[in-house]
Simulated assay, not measured.
Amino acid sequence: MQIKKFFERLFNWELWDFYVLYAPLSPMWFWYCMRSKAVWFFTPSNPKITFGGFEGEGKKEMYDLLPAEIVPQTIYIQPGIPFEEVLKAIARSGLQYPFVVKPDVGMKGILFRIIEDEAQLKRYHERIPVEYLIQAKVDYPVEVSVFYYRYPWEEKGVVSGFIHKELLQVRGDGKRTLKEHILAHPRARYRFEEMEKKHGHRFDRVIPEGEIFYLSFAGNHNRGARFTNLHDLIDDNLVRVFDKISKETEFYYGRYDIKTQSIEDLKQGRNFMILEYNGSGAEPNHIYDCNMSLWQAYKTILHHWRVLYQISKYNARNGHPYWPYKKGRDFLRAAKKHFRRLEKFE
């Protein structure tokens, strides 16, 4: 079985480690650093977001830039405060169970949870070592990602990627246990250690026929979510929606993660919520699950890097300078230390 998994990973680039996948492209990234004469050449790409949104930015600073009506109701909780204070904050806000909790500064779905009751919240609060947010759970049925960019000298932007997300899940057959479902799942079986940590206490449970059991609520590729390419549905209406949002926030490059009632509603600018958006560090995740060859994926990534370089260069020349090396180095070190801390509690 282990040998089989090894060869499946070897010949399926979508299963490769991030650093292995991107290593052949790294000379181009360094070339942009040299041309810009700045290690952090991407920092002016999104001037209103710390570090250009590459890594380590807080969700609060990004939510605060957006119109309140398209952001889920959110409150922020400091770690270590008395739990009674948390309950008072929830009562004042009017938030109701179930709701979402996640670190204000997070990545890859680490410590993202759906909280069903007070006991779960208490365990989470006692465990998490950093500031976190409590957010209304958005029940719109369709979850999508939109990769958007706009050259600052142009009025109209580009939606370069549009995908539908399906959370990592299994459907019961009334016969197999959860463990057997996971071992048979084309994605979950490669995440067995993570699945055992999260769901090991339920491994012997037989999943009733037709029941959907969610293995992860994070809609990230690195958390096993399945993507479906919606590129054929990109049109001027969709672009107009994100032009309007992005001009208000001076957001030039990155990816929006959204829940909506329907694709048509999203195109009309109604019945949708922005769960998160990621700036210069956003991966064009429409390369996954779209039958792309490795070379097509590389071409797509390189195109987006070139766009990022051009936007950043223009903004640097127009009042938004590159971050100095030491400032960026110190910020990145602090961010990585923060994420290592989170991983210990995951």
Rank of each mutant, 00 (worst) to 15 (best):
E131C: 12
K156C: 11
T177W: 03
L178W: 07
T177V: 01
G161Y: 11
R127W: 07
F162Q: 00
L121M: 05
V158S: 11
V159P: 07
L168C: 04
R176C: 13
G172Q: 03
P152V: 10
H185V: 06
V138I: 15
H185E: 02
R127A: 07
V146W: 09
G172R: 02
Y149D: 07
F147V: 00
Q169M: 14
W153A: 14
S160W: 05
I182A: 09
H164K: 15
T177K: 10
F147T: 06
V170D: 08
K137I: 12
P152Q: 06
V146A: 11
S160K: 15
I134P: 10
L168Q: 04
D139R: 10
P141D: 05
L133D: 13
E180G: 11
I163K: 01
K165C: 02
D173M: 06
L168F: 02
H181F: 09
E180L: 08
L167K: 13
Y132R: 02
L133E: 13
K137S: 13
Q135E: 10
Y132A: 01
A184Y: 05
W153C: 09
E166T: 15
V159L: 02
T177Y: 04
K175F: 04
A136I: 11
S160R: 13
L183G: 13
R176Q: 10
G172K: 03
I163F: 00
F162D: 02
R150K: 06
R176L: 09
F162M: 01
R127L: 07
E126H: 05
P141N: 03
V142A: 13
Q169H: 15
P129G: 04
E154W: 08
H125V: 06
Y151D: 12
D173G: 06
E126T: 04
L133N: 14
R150L: 01
E126S: 08
V142W: 08
V138R: 03
S145E: 15
H164I: 03
Y151S: 13
V142S: 08
R176N: 12
L133R: 13
P152H: 08
Y132I: 00
L167W: 03
L168N: 07
V130A: 01
L183T: 05
L121D: 08
H181I: 10
E143A: 00
E143P: 02
Q169C: 15
A136D: 12
E126I: 00
H125D: 11
G174K: 01
V158L: 14
E143M: 01
Y140I: 00
V170N: 03
E155W: 01
Y132L: 02
H164S: 14
S160L: 11
I128K: 05
V146R: 09
P186M: 07
V130D: 05
F147R: 00
V142M: 14
R150N: 00
V144C: 01
K122E: 12
H125G: 05
Y124K: 00
G174H: 01
D173E: 09
R123A: 10
G172W: 06
H125E: 02
L168I: 07
V146I: 14
E180W: 07
A136E: 15
V144Y: 04
H164G: 15
A136Q: 15
D173Y: 09
Y151P: 06
A136N: 14
P129K: 01
K137P: 06
E154Q: 15
F147I: 05
V146L: 11
I163R: 02
Y132N: 01
I128T: 11
P152G: 04
P129E: 06
K137F: 14
R176T: 09
I134Y: 10
L183E: 14
K137L: 15
Q135D: 05
K175A: 07
G157Q: 00
K156P: 09
A184G: 12
